[in-house]
Design a protein around this nucleic acid. Structure first.
Lengths: 226, 226
DNA sequence: ATAATATTTAAGACTTTTTTAAGACTTTAT
DNA sequence: ATAAAGTCTTAAAAAAGTCTTAAATATTAT
């Protein structure tokens, strides 16, 4: 359950915070919204990949949970666990028809909710993230970069460096930035290893295109460039 | 829910009959067994497709529900909904690790149980009988891989690993991925057992073809390769 | 022109994977 | 219940690939 992004759609601030804490304690990354309309806004432009799971209260101001569910299903396949009051038992069938993956009745047992979240996360297919920069494609499922159909054949570190650059193509990354992100270690300054890696990546890109793509910002670092 | 074959594994005759009636009323075709061992017998020769769903009580004479689950998972992907006593709440994690798809605590609400059954029937993925990757064929009924007519003679774990790789042949599977899918357990890092299994699978494939088929992605994992 | 910074290359240090074999463990058959 | 057969895990050594280092070369800014 580590690092899973979970959207909490719940108008009751106490319950929402309770859920938020519970999820944080279990290593998840919860995001709170407090109305149906807010949930839809959050999910509107969102690529499917934005959230790993949605916890959706049924009784919401603005739009009900059922309306939210109906709206997003078809567009978004993120698993949804509905939170229902005991009184709502009859609406369960509608819920499931609308595309909920599971539901939990309030008041819920923390362990049970976590267990059900785990089931959904486990059976949800892994989302592939694909980054683009001009002709270059970086595929997180294939752990490699591509130009057209041609695989660059990046090593692990090369892949991680290019991924970082492509995730934030306007930013200039200092060697410090790169080192601490990719190596997850302190950067001690007079280290040539990043330069060597950058050189290798450039070499692999150069096999397939004339464009440089990785620009040196003198005295500072590197960035992606058109 | 019409005409779905459902196996009821429950030693309490009253509950079993109650479930049976409930399912019949909803157009299902229930089959009752009353012990863990009987369940295993019923599922032993059974082609995967024999049942659409299994309702599995945890407290059973002979073999416990957990033992039954552990036994069938890997061989059979039929969705399993566990029936647990309220007291068993702690065992839920084990249940899920063992491969249960959902669980309901007794005493259960009929509507809720039906709803959960519907979810499982709906989301049960259409099972492919046979997977192909170039010359390699993986037969999920025979639990083995083939090159032409020749059987590879895969062990259970070898079969599951190759199945996973072949289900998603463009994806690079990390050891973590593989371990958590095949072993259904947390991967603790410095483990050579996956490497040994991969080596064994390669050896078996190599008896019949020159192609490598399983490529090592250095520092990351393994994937299928033309 | 000089100093500072970046690039490239190649060697070897280092890490990860492969293979083998032995023993633990599980399953099957008697 | 016991033996036999097969499978899985562990450990260690060998092999393969990657990363780092260092030195030589090139580029940039002043």
């Amino acid at each position: 359950m580590k690092n899973k992004k979970i959207l909490i759609v719940e108008d009751d601030v106490n319950i929402s915070n309770l859920l938020c804490d519970l999820l944080k304690q279990n290593g998840c990354l919860p995001v709170q919204v407090f109305s149906g309309t807010e949930a839809l806004m959050r999910l509107e432009n969102a690529a499917d990949s934005d959230f790993d799971l949605i916890l959706l209260d049924l009784m919401l101001p603005g739009k009900t949970g059922l309306e939210v569910l109906t709206d997003i299903r078809g567009r978004i396949e993120t698993p949804v666990i509905a939170l229902t009051a005991v009184a709502d038992k009859e609406s369960v069938v509608n819920l499931l028809k609308a595309g909920a993956n599971d539901y939990v009745t309030k008041p819920f047992d923390n362990a049970e909710l976590l267990a059900r979240i785990e089931v959904q996360l486990r059976s949800a297919k892994v989302r592939t993230q694909v980054l683009h920069f001009r002709e270059i494609t970086l595929d997180t499922e294939r752990f490699d970069g591509f130009i057209g159909d041609a695989a660059l054949g990046l090593s692990k570190r090369e892949y991680e460096i290019l991924k970082l650059l492509m995730e934030n193509p306007t930013k200039v990354f200092t060697k410090n930035n790169l080192y601490e992100s990719v190596w997850r270690d302190e950067f001690l300054g007079d280290d040539n290893t990043i330069n060597v890696h950058i050189s290798k990546i450039r070499g692999k890109i150069a096999k397939f295109t004339d464009k440089e793509y990785i620009r040196t910002v003198w005295g500072i670092g590197f960035k992606m460039e058109k």
